[in-house]
Design a binder for these strands. Structure first.
Lengths: 353, 353
DNA sequence: CGGTATGTTGAGACCGGTCTCAGTTCGCTT
DNA sequence: AAGCGAACTGAGACCGGTCTCAACATACCG
């Protein structure tokens, strides 16, 4: 009834005084631990109610060392992939009594480092990270050095002994590429926005292990089909030029490609726009396949054939693994690989010539 | 170099001992406040570096009362609207040195209440809320009673004196409706997934003030055009039946509508699917307009005419207002109304008959 | 009926920072 | 050379909980 607005918060001591018991006893009644007689408990609870007592979770964390908070560091929450994975993680976390502190890295190592620093300072019980880089892993080492459990998702860091949840990207890329090859295509481009120095070469490792897997699956499949110099068809850094620009470039001239593999749904969108701007029809003039079954891929004309990832489950599984560690599981690191699923629609056809 | 993994964290006291100064002095050097001689500062910083000192933000919050953390409570992070708004808020928050704790309410008052309780317990400095209900505002009162600044976004709560950021939804709805009316449509449906008891009546207030504004703008415009009983064209609760189901029902039979206003992009997607399933062509057989310029609305055939909201800015502005309050601005509550913008594409045409 | 197990309570240390206040040192003024 | 203020440092209280430990009451044991 009468919650005061005088700055100071109501504390256990205040409740104790009102209830006429010691601070320790009041705390026991409020925190529901230790032994308290029923009569005293009722008295304390009534006093708390009357004063408008609201526990201070931070003080609790200070003495218990547990914050019941998980940190999650992703590229960008506006990217539907991360939004879905975050939701998956949040659901599992909430069900287990944890909250989520969210940070966007924009795929920048420095921003990521800063975000991780803040999360550690806030004493999260553990971290969920889709690392900006699978190879430069100093940021991740920081977490391990701080003694906090860490689970990677979407991207692995092979050099790190740590729980990881990824999708079977290489297999997915092979299937998608085979589909195009089987339809008769030989000039197929793979487009990703991942940052990379210089043109792609076979021995390179890309910053994102998931894209790395896809690219290598793509190249291997082309090679097995006898396509010469398959690396030339891999296009990274699409963010710099702009996906639409790049796609237009790939669709014009003598060396134009007849099919495109988009590494995510946002890229597929760019390709769609480019095709439309150029007046090319899908699938007649251009075949398109993409990763991720974004909600709109079924309503375009034609619908887009995609490799769907269990995105929600990737986030959920990562949270599950993390919570298991927090609860004290000391077993060896686990890598959970989730299968992808092909959803065939109408964006693939034989090449025109 | 030698960060220990023995459970205990390195504290200011540890650093002080190593540096050979008092805890108070070490704290001053590390926290960069008070007066410390250059020599001592260097010594302390070196000791901190050597021991791998990592400040405990919670302890800091305990003594200062400031957590540098904002809470944000939204319907669902998977909904692109909320994802974008959250990103806008996160950017402003980070720039000002704040983090974000994220909670999904699923538009359920009870889940929302729980989320708010947790956030308050974690002593966030303030809360950003897109309330599940604009009319049942007990949840929001809790925040105010706790003396924490609160900013509402996307949805207002007229009964509450509190900073609010919304879009000019009524005007947007009028413009969209007029567009259809001008094209010659008379039988136009408005579809929303908002929960509501019974059929919509003129005097009703909907749980979401933004949908409420849209619906009333829609009804008023139809009425001004002389359409009898405009309320009958308002369809709420679409989540229960399923948007696609509902849309199919509206498109069949003698009383079929010739145009649809979708209250958000997810609904537009459902309408698209229904039209496709029924073999109806947009815009020839059905005109469609929607709120929110989702990324895919430009690549469907035809492109969808939409009323774009400055979603990112809604979140950003809300965060700005909140931070201003946290910094101590005691002025009267502000309501910031952001304009919407019509993006005309090709989903509107005169009705067939 | 003394001894002991069990239940309930209170006092006070502790978590890791910040901050107030008092004491010390030093340079500079007159 | 005494006086004064500024710069620096240390001791210890404090934030709001948890938790250990000791004190005490009651009940149950042989």
């Amino acid at each position: 009834m009468s919650t005061e607005n005088g700055r100071r918060e109501v504390t256990v001591s205040d409740v104790a005084t009102t209830a006429g018991v010691s601070k320790a006893t009041a705390a026991r009644a409020l925190g529901d631990y230790g032994a308290v007689s029923a009569a005293v408990r009722d008295r304390v609870l009534a006093a708390a109610e009357q004063l408008g007592y609201r526990p201070n979770a931070l003080a609790k964390t200070m003495s218990t060392g547990r914050s019941n908070t998980l940190g999650i560091v992703i590229g960008d929450i506006e990217n539907p992939f991360f939004a879905q994975a975050t939701r998956g993680a949040a659901d599992v976390a909430n069900a287990a009594g944890f909250d989520l502190i969210l940070s966007n890295s924009d795929e920048d190592a420095e921003i990521e480092a800063n975000a991780i620093g803040v999360q550690l300072a806030k004493r999260v019980d553990g971290l969920l990270v889709a690392p900006a880089s699978s190879v430069h892993i100093d940021n991740l080492r920081t977490i391990i050095d701080a003694g906090r459990p860490l689970v990677l998702f979407d991207r692995a860091a092979p050099e790190l002994q740590v729980d990881t949840v990824i999708a079977a990207n290489r297999r997915g890329a092979k299937d998608l590429t085979s589909l195009l090859l089987d339809a008769g295509h030989r000039r197929i481009a793979f487009i990703s926005t991942i940052a990379h120095d210089g043109p792609f070469r076979r021995a390179d490792s890309l910053a994102s292990s998931s894209v790395d897997e896809r690219v290598h699956g793509f190249v291997e499949t082309l090679e097995a089909a006898g396509v010469p110099e398959p690396e030339q068809f891999v296009h990274l850094n699409a963010r710099i030029e702009g996906v639409e620009q790049l796609a237009r470039r790939l669709l014009e001239g003598d060396a134009a490609v007849t099919a495109i593999v988009a590494s995510d749904s946002l890229i597929a969108l760019g390709v769609f726009r480019a095709a439309r701007a150029l007046g090319r029809r899908i699938p007649d003039d251009l075949s398109l396949v993409a990763f991720d079954d974004a909600d709109w891929t079924g309503v375009t004309t034609p619908g887009v054939t995609v490799m769907a990832q269990p995105i929600h489950e990737i986030g959920a599984e990562a949270a599950r693994l993390l919570i298991r560690r927090i609860r004290g599981d000391g077993g060896p690191p686990v890598t959970s690989v989730l299968e992808q699923r092909l959803i065939a629609r109408d964006s693939v056809a034989p090449p025109r010539r």
